[in-house]
């Protein structure tokens, strides 16, 4: 079931590591889906974007959030908690994409209502495949609520 994509889907990538962010974006680029990735480096910027504050006054609501746990300042779990406690933002699926395999991180993330948890594969090719499959899963298999007009 391939959906007709008129507007590109928007992915908010919250990742402090430029290399990882770039790799993710490269993987997205290889994807057949019409997508757009917006990358922020930390939690504060992420929340500003999501809440359309400051320079993000005209920001577009993302369809999916890719969140790294290991972030400077406000860490991934705090961001997750804020998003999931926000009556409006909580409907945006949050995919935890992190290097951590820690059971504690997995448990806590789901406890905070993460939509899924993925450990970044160390191998390049695997990584590319995983990122592509995230996109594929969330935009071609899953049905998401339509609330572009917030």
């Amino acid at each position: 079931m391939q959906k007709e994509q008129i507007n590109p889907v928007l992915i908010l990538l919250i990742e402090d590591n430029a290399g990882d962010a770039r790799l993710s974006m490269e993987a997205m680029k290889e994807s057949k889906l019409n997508n757009q990735v917006f990358w922020v480096k930390d939690g504060i910027e992420a929340m500003e974007y999501l809440r359309k504050q400051g320079k993000y006054k005209n920001a577009i609501r993302p369809d999916l959030i890719l969140l790294d746990l290991n972030l400077p300042g406000k860490d991934g779990k705090e961001i997750l908690e804020e998003i999931k406690n926000d009556s409006d933002l909580k409907r945006i699926p949050v995919v935890i994409l992190t290097i951590s395999k820690s059971e504690e991180d997995i448990f806590k993330s789901y406890n905070l209502h993460a939509n899924c948890y993925i450990t970044k594969p160390i191998d390049f090719n695997e990584f590319m495949d995983v990122v592509k499959s995230i996109e594929n899963f969330w935009f071609t298999i899953v049905s998401l609520p339509n609330n572009k007009n917030y």
């Binding site: 590591n17 790799l23 970044k120 390049f124």
Partner: peptide, 14 residues
């Protein structure tokens, strides 16, 4: 150490 190494490996492969 994993992180930077992954970058080296990933980007050379890219």
């Amino acid at each position: 150490l994993q992180e930077p190494l992954r970058m080296v490996s990933s980007f050379t492969q890219l």
